[in-house]
Structures are given as C-alpha cells and as structure tokens.
C-alpha cells in the first residue's frame, strides 16, 4: 500500500506559553474519512490548520501526499493547491458573485483559461446543487448555501485532500443537513477528508475513523462505532455525555458553582 495521504508526526504547537498541541501522531490513508472530535480548546482546529500550514507548528512534521508541508523550503502555495479547506465562517469573497468565487482562484492560481474555469465552476456548483445561484452574490445566500459554495470553490481546484473546520457550526440547525449531504457525497466518491466536527451522527455514519482529542493530545482513535458508542476512556465518555445531554451538564455546573461560592 502507498504511503498515507496525510501523515502527522510528533506535532507540537504553542501560542506563547499556551501549549495547544502536545505531540500529535496521526495518519490518514487515501480515501479515508477521519472525524476529529473533542471539547473546545482541545486543539482540534489548530491541528487541522497545521495540515495546510495556516498555523505554523512549533515542532514536528506534516506530510501531505508525500510532500513535507513543514519543510521551510517547500513551495507552500503549490502544496495548498492540493489541499481544499472549508471554514466555519464560509469565507466566501463577498465582492464576487458565486461563479466568480469559483473561477477567480482557478484562473489566478491554476492559470486555467476563462472557458475552462467557467466549465469547472458550473460543474462543481451543480455537484453541490446550487447551479441556479451562479450569478448571485454571497450575501444573498443562506448560510447553508454559502457553505456549499465554499465547498464547491475548494473542489474546483481539484484537491486531493479536503479539510473541514467545523463546517456546520455556524449554521442554523435546519440548514446543517444540506451541507452534510454534500460532504457525505464527497466521502462516497472517495475523497480523503479530515473533518473537525460536533456532528456525531455524521461522524458515526460517514467517518471511517473517529479521533477524540483533549488537552492537545489524541486520547482515542478508532472506528466510529467503538469511539462514539463504546469509548474506552473516561474523558471521551464525559465529553460525549455532555454533548448528547448538554442541559444536564449545565445544571451540574451551576450547582457546583454555587457550592463553591457559599463555601
């Protein structure tokens, strides 16, 4: 078997004194879908952003498709062309129409000609089910539609790997489904995907593997059924119980707070 598509070795990242990642080792094979879950502040988004070097790791190596991303002499723009990224806040370019959002990067970065870029753009808009919004401006779209355009924009560059940074966290609940459907389609088409998410249903149904992170380390890594349904570690169990029943967790915290104050 060829080497893994994404390979992370002993990755450390600090912001000042704050150690966010404390030695991460992770491999993601070709066509594999890996969901990274964990409490906020666990470093999962930072880990994802280290893969395409939006954050510069303090120590350790990241390889994507055999190229070392963390090599100081690497052509990072060339590496990033092969890695699609989808953000929590969509980050569409508001001064461009939907189609221009897809064509401008192709033309400026990949030097595709106008007709080719337009063809690829139309194709990918159709894939995410938004062909009829081609001439709209992002501000006139719903959050779910904007996120699907953002996915189409990344796909138009022909990436080998897709990174998703909490793609549904900024969406109204009723719009989450459309975005997840597009991601499920991508997974079925064999795209290598690394997804930071809180959507446990998606993780259980679509992911090949689920990684649970806490405190800057990987606590648990295994198939979704095992990590989500029968977690081996107490920290994973605690996180999942709070996620599934947030109301209960809140009540507990309030009570313990009050005890602390009165005592």
């Amino acid at each position: 078997m060829s080497r893994p598509e994404i390979e992370i070795r002993d990755l450390h990242k600090s912001f000042g004194d704050n150690q966010v990642l404390r030695g991460i080792d992770l491999e993601i094979g070709q066509g594999e879908v890996v969901c990274v879950i964990g409490p906020s502040g666990s470093g999962k988004s930072t880990l994802l952003r280290c893969v395409n070097l939006l954050e510069e790791p303090t120590k350790g190596q990241v390889y994507v498709g055999g190229t070392e991303v963390t090599d100081p002499d690497v052509d990072i723009d060339a590496v990033r062309r092969r890695i699609g990224m989808v953000f929590q806040q969509f980050n569409l370019f508001p001064h461009l129409t939907v189609t221009e959002n897809l064509t401008l990067p192709q033309r400026r970065v990949l030097r595709r000609d106008k007709a080719e870029a337009a063809r690829v753009a139309a194709e990918n808009l159709a894939r995410v089910g938004l062909a009829e919004k081609a001439d709209a401006y992002p501000s006139s779209l719903s959050g779910g539609q904007q996120q699907r355009v953002a996915i189409a924009r990344a796909l138009a560059m022909g990436p080998e790997v897709m990174l998703f940074d909490e793609p549904t966290s900024a969406l109204d609940p009723e719009l989450v489904g459309d975005v997840l459907a597009v991601m499920r389609m991508l997974a079925q088409e064999g795209m290598t995907m690394m997804v930071v998410t809180h959507e446990m249903t998606f993780a259980r149904e679509v992911a090949d593997r689920v990684v649970f992170m806490d405190g800057g380390v990987i606590v648990e890594d295994g198939d979704p059924e095992q990590v989500i349904t029968r977690p081996a570690h107490e920290r994973t169990r605690h996180f999942l119980s709070r996620l599934l029943d947030p109301a209960m967790a809140d009540v507990e915290e309030e009570i313990s707070d009050q005890v602390g104050k009165s005592g």
Binding site: L54, D77, R80, R81, G84, F87, N91, R108, V109, R153
Partner: peptide
C-alpha cells in the same frame, strides 16, 4: 478569514 481562504486556495 478572507486572507486565510485565499491562501488556502493557493494564492500567494
């Protein structure tokens, strides 16, 4: 996020 999105698409 605008710069990050552009950089992640491969813009210098």
């Amino acid at each position: 996020g605008q710069m990050e999105a552009a950089r992640s698409l491969g813009f210098s």
